[in-house]
Amino acid sequence: MQQAIAVLDSGVGGLTVVKEVMRQLPQEKILYFGDTARTPYGSRPAEEVLAFTSEIVDYLIQYQPKMIVIACNTATAVALEEIRRRVNLPIVGVINPGARAAIGRTKSGVVGVIGTDGTIKSGAYEHALKRLSPKVEVISRACPSFVPLVEAGNFNSSETFRTVSEALLPLRRSDMDCLILGCTHYPFLCHPISEVMGQDVVLINSAEETAREISTILHEKSELAGRGEVPIHQFFCSAEPRKFQEIAQIWLGEQIWLMPVVWQVYQLRA
């Protein structure tokens, strides 16, 4: 039986990471869990986010994955180190890869970060960025209204553009040339975010760098799937299965149209 890369998120946001993993590592089996019943995580207390993340990790471990990816920025900020301490598997988060990508792209030395309340309050991105480049200027802003738009599948409406514009208007007055999308839901809103911020600001989606880190770790452990393997992906959500499947199929597109996929609902405690 092929061992999977397990990916978890507070909802559909982690599908942005899944899409990039499927592109870079098409032979790898994906085991995804979106906690759609309890999304969003960003406004919840840290201890609650840790409890939810731990519960999902415990559930995924029964499938014997070879790696766990915490594709939620809030959960990465709150729970990554604790999960690493108690789980004997490679555990990958999305904050450090996003910071590396931004430092590699910025020319002005001014980097913006948008994320949930929990991620921004944690200071996790600022710490990661300054570890890589102590002189970098970091401008952070919480955008809690974005996740509900994505979970509803509302990516490009006039309401979405208005909400994005109101949230990001203060950032346009800065000298930033890179903006980290510090929530894996936010790449679903790339078009309106780019429209508001303008062509001179590069949007940093940590998914590409995260997928590279996954590939590197599996290569070093000699655990990459063999060529020619046809993975059977499994997608779990904790509520709203029709909406979850609809968004997943739209976002992943050709990556899953020709692949065997199992869709399941698993109800966690409220």
Rank of each mutant, 00 (worst) to 15 (best):
M1H: 13
Q2D: 02
I5A: 06
I5R: 03
I5G: 08
V12L: 05
L15H: 14
V21G: 07
M22Q: 07
R23D: 04
Q24E: 02
K29A: 08
L31E: 06
L31A: 07
D35K: 02
E48W: 14
A51S: 15
S54H: 13
D58Y: 05
Y59R: 13
Y59M: 05
Q64G: 00
C72T: 14
T74W: 14
V78C: 08
L80Q: 13
E82A: 14
R86Y: 09
L89S: 09
I91C: 09
I95G: 12
N96T: 07
G98Y: 02
A99F: 10
R100N: 10
A101V: 01
G104K: 14
S108N: 14
V110I: 11
G112Q: 10
T116V: 08
S122A: 09
G123V: 07
H127A: 12
K130Q: 15
I139A: 04
R141A: 11
C143Y: 07
C143D: 10
V150I: 15
E151I: 06
E151R: 07
F155V: 01
S157H: 12
S157Q: 13
S158M: 08
S158R: 08
S158V: 09
F161Y: 14
S165G: 11
S165Y: 03
L168R: 04
S174Q: 11
M176A: 12
I180E: 06
I180N: 07
G182P: 12
C183A: 11
Y186I: 01
I193H: 05
V196I: 13
V202A: 15
T210P: 02
R212T: 09
R212K: 14
I214R: 01
I214Q: 02
I214M: 02
I217K: 10
H219P: 00
R227K: 08
C237F: 01
E240N: 14
Q245I: 12
W251E: 06
M259T: 11
P260I: 00
W263C: 03
Y266C: 04
L268P: 08
